[in-house]
Simulated scan of single mutants.
Amino acid sequence: MIYQTFVLNAQYSSGNSTIEKISTAKSFLEFSSRIGIIPLIVLTTIYLVLNKDLISSKKFTYFMVTYVYLIINFITVIISGRYYNHYYITMIFPVVVISVVGINGFLSFIKNDIRRFIFLFALCSLTMSYSYLSLRDLVKKPLTTSPNQKVESLTINQAEYIQTHSNKNDSIYIHNIDANIYLYSNRYSNSKYFVLPSLDYTKFKHLKNEFLDDMESNPPKFIVLRKETFEKNSDTDERINLSLKKIINENYKIVPKYKNTEYLMFEEK
């Protein structure tokens, strides 16, 4: 547990440069602005600055601790140098707490009912507009893009092929691409490495050996990987591409239907 939670994650995060971490921070800040989080944090900051003397020292200390936690948590989000939206989930707690502090603070500060109504109406309008933008950019677009990922994409097509040409006892392996193929095909990976972490495996020989041992002891019926990955000439085995390519060339044959697609599919000989 200690190894997987702390040691491996530290190694995972150390594989990127400072420039990549800064770029990731910018991306997440743009994301925060796009979904309406930045205005809420600014609102709370304004409230605390204007009313510092009116807030008890105990409460003010609590608010500052929450801000510090927000900053530290944001650092953990960007430290990997990878802009993955799901990393942002851990930001929900401090963002919600800080937002509630600002909204509640302004409501207690505004005594006039009409002004309170105007404030709440403006706040609701603001959040609704950001919600619309989020739905438009982050939800509607992926669902309406053709081919639709949920209906007719290459991933869906390949998953259906796997389901048709295998049984539930057969395992598969999807190499560094859309892992949803496992779900759509209702098939398990041949090992615990159903998606390899983004590491340089020339520096993690024990992980590489475990992966290759599983490939030998429990070979998958199908392997799917990017065409670019398979055809690329490389001198290093950083992402285990060379080792996997050797295994494919020795023990697998290409599925003709997908030989000219973005994702190549290979079936065990």
Results as ranks from 00 to 15, higher is better:
residue 76 T to L: 11
residue 30 E to S: 12
residue 214 D to F: 13
residue 27 S to K: 03
residue 173 Y to K: 06
residue 81 G to V: 00
residue 156 I to M: 03
residue 96 V to W: 10
residue 98 I to R: 07
residue 110 I to V: 15
residue 262 E to R: 13
residue 28 F to T: 06
residue 243 S to V: 04
residue 180 N to Q: 12
residue 204 F to K: 10
residue 227 K to D: 00
residue 21 K to M: 12
residue 216 E to S: 12
residue 101 V to W: 13
residue 122 A to T: 03
residue 182 Y to H: 07
residue 193 Y to D: 15
residue 136 R to M: 14
residue 19 I to S: 04
residue 72 I to R: 01
residue 218 N to M: 05
residue 204 F to L: 14
residue 33 S to M: 04
residue 243 S to T: 02
residue 229 T to Q: 07
residue 119 F to C: 09
residue 40 L to R: 06
residue 85 N to K: 05
residue 129 S to Y: 13
residue 100 V to A: 12
residue 8 L to C: 02
residue 75 I to M: 02
residue 246 K to A: 11
residue 64 M to H: 14
residue 142 P to D: 05
residue 24 T to I: 07
residue 261 T to K: 00
residue 160 E to N: 07
residue 123 L to G: 06
residue 219 P to S: 13
residue 19 I to E: 06
residue 23 S to L: 01
residue 41 I to K: 04
residue 117 F to A: 13
residue 45 T to M: 00
residue 263 Y to I: 01
residue 162 I to R: 06
residue 23 S to C: 03
residue 103 I to W: 14
residue 161 Y to S: 01
residue 218 N to I: 08
residue 265 M to S: 05
residue 155 T to C: 00
residue 133 L to W: 11
residue 233 N to F: 04
residue 147 P to I: 10
residue 244 L to E: 06
residue 250 E to C: 08
residue 165 H to L: 05
residue 196 L to Q: 02
residue 240 I to R: 02
residue 7 V to Q: 07
residue 119 F to D: 06
residue 48 L to T: 04
residue 206 H to M: 11
residue 91 M to R: 00
residue 199 L to T: 03
residue 37 I to F: 06
residue 150 K to M: 12
residue 47 Y to H: 11
residue 37 I to E: 06
residue 18 T to E: 02
residue 139 V to A: 09
residue 175 H to G: 08
residue 92 I to N: 03
residue 78 I to L: 04
residue 66 T to Q: 15
residue 210 E to A: 14
residue 229 T to M: 08
residue 128 M to H: 02
residue 172 I to N: 01
residue 39 P to S: 05
residue 170 D to Q: 04
residue 264 L to I: 08
residue 11 Q to R: 07
residue 235 D to C: 04
residue 10 A to N: 12
residue 201 Y to E: 11
residue 158 Q to L: 04
residue 133 L to M: 14
residue 49 V to M: 08
residue 19 I to L: 15
residue 93 F to T: 15
residue 149 Q to G: 09
residue 47 Y to P: 12
residue 61 T to N: 14
residue 111 K to I: 15
residue 76 T to W: 09
residue 152 E to P: 02
residue 116 R to C: 12
residue 75 I to L: 04
residue 102 G to E: 12
residue 159 A to Q: 03
residue 42 V to D: 01
residue 72 I to K: 01
residue 180 N to K: 08
residue 212 L to G: 08
residue 57 S to L: 05
residue 126 L to R: 10
residue 155 T to Y: 01
residue 19 I to H: 03
residue 140 K to F: 02
residue 27 S to A: 15
residue 20 E to F: 15
residue 14 S to R: 12
residue 260 N to L: 11
residue 97 V to H: 08
residue 224 V to E: 06
residue 147 P to S: 12
residue 251 N to R: 09
residue 82 R to G: 00
residue 47 Y to A: 11
residue 165 H to W: 01
residue 96 V to N: 10
residue 212 L to E: 11
